[in-house]
Amino acid sequence: MDPGSVEKAAAALLDAYATGAPIAPLTEEHPGLTVPDAYAIQLAQVAAWTADGARIKGHKVGLTSAAMRRQFGVDQPDFGHLTDGMFYAEAAPIDVGRFLQPRIEPEVTFVLGRPLSGPGVTVADAVAAVDFVLPALEIIDSRIADWRITLADTIADNASSGGVVLGARPVRMDGLDLALTGCLLHRNGDLVDTGAGGAVLGSPVNALVWLANALGERGVGLEAGHVVLPGSVTAAVPVAPGDTFTAAFGGIGTVTASFGEAAC
């Protein structure tokens, strides 16, 4: 894809954010859209955000569970960028109108205590770089109409990022087996799904390793203090105005995200 087409595609996605109107899949307009093309489109949006003052606070890994890959018909993980404007506090209702087609995902989240750069990152390297973990609820969203995404579509759309709510109690990884960490996801008090860390590439740590090496191939490293969302332990659940979600993780704690009505 030539640079002009990359900028045009990025502009269409940025316009979807601004107008709240999703667009047709990019792969329909560009049938030959490749994964490298899609990451170029993602980075063009990131450049626009940072030019407007946004700060990169971390990354997310998407499509790490078999359930999510089946749900969206894709066959490998991807990554996206997290900016400072994507983080929401537990205590404040989230305006659901800020999103187009929001869904919720429970995740065990890493906060790094030291830089981590690939390629060649091992599980031991990744564990040593983690300061602590937190329970999190990621809000995924799509600027692609009706979630009709291929892998290239979701990569171009910043890995379908929307926002994230982090729990407030940090937990050290000592003694935790994240592969065996279970999760109960409730919506408005009703249990809607269950999962475990093993659904995330066998362990959320494996997703961190994958991310560090995938970024390293592009000359990018993870920084101390960065937040890494490694992927959902359940399938994504649609969000409606007025919903309250709580994820409870064994040995890690709980996190709650409450959604208000859409602002006029």
Rank of each mutant, 00 (worst) to 15 (best):
D2T: 15
P3G: 06
S5I: 10
S5N: 12
K8V: 15
A11Y: 09
L14W: 06
L14C: 10
Y17I: 11
G20H: 08
L33K: 06
A47R: 15
A48H: 13
W49I: 05
A51R: 09
D52E: 15
G53E: 03
A54P: 09
I56A: 03
I56R: 10
I56V: 15
K57Q: 15
K60E: 08
S65Y: 01
S65C: 02
M68C: 05
M68G: 02
M68P: 00
R69C: 08
R70H: 12
V74P: 06
D75A: 10
F79Y: 15
G80K: 12
L82I: 14
D84A: 02
G85A: 11
G85S: 10
F87M: 13
Y88A: 06
Y88W: 08
P93D: 14
P93G: 13
D95V: 11
V96P: 05
P102H: 13
P106M: 08
V108G: 05
G118A: 09
T122C: 01
A124F: 09
A126W: 03
A136E: 00
A136Q: 01
A136V: 01
I139K: 00
R143F: 10
A145Y: 08
I149W: 14
I149T: 15
L151S: 11
L151F: 08
A152M: 10
D153P: 08
I155P: 12
D157T: 09
S160L: 11
S161L: 12
S161R: 13
G163Q: 05
R169M: 10
V171A: 06
V171D: 07
R172V: 08
M173V: 11
M173A: 02
D177G: 00
T181N: 01
G182V: 10
C183I: 03
L184H: 07
H186Q: 12
H186M: 09
D190C: 08
D190Q: 15
L191R: 06
D193E: 14
T194H: 05
T194Q: 13
G202Y: 06
S203F: 01
S203L: 01
P204Y: 04
P204D: 06
V205A: 01
V205W: 04
N206S: 04
A207G: 02
A207V: 00
G216P: 04
E217P: 08
R218M: 10
E223I: 02
H226A: 14
V228K: 05
P230G: 11
V239A: 01
P241D: 09
P241L: 11
T246A: 04
A247H: 02
A248N: 09
G250C: 12
G251A: 07
V255F: 00
V255H: 00
E261R: 14
E261K: 13
A262Q: 04
C264P: 14
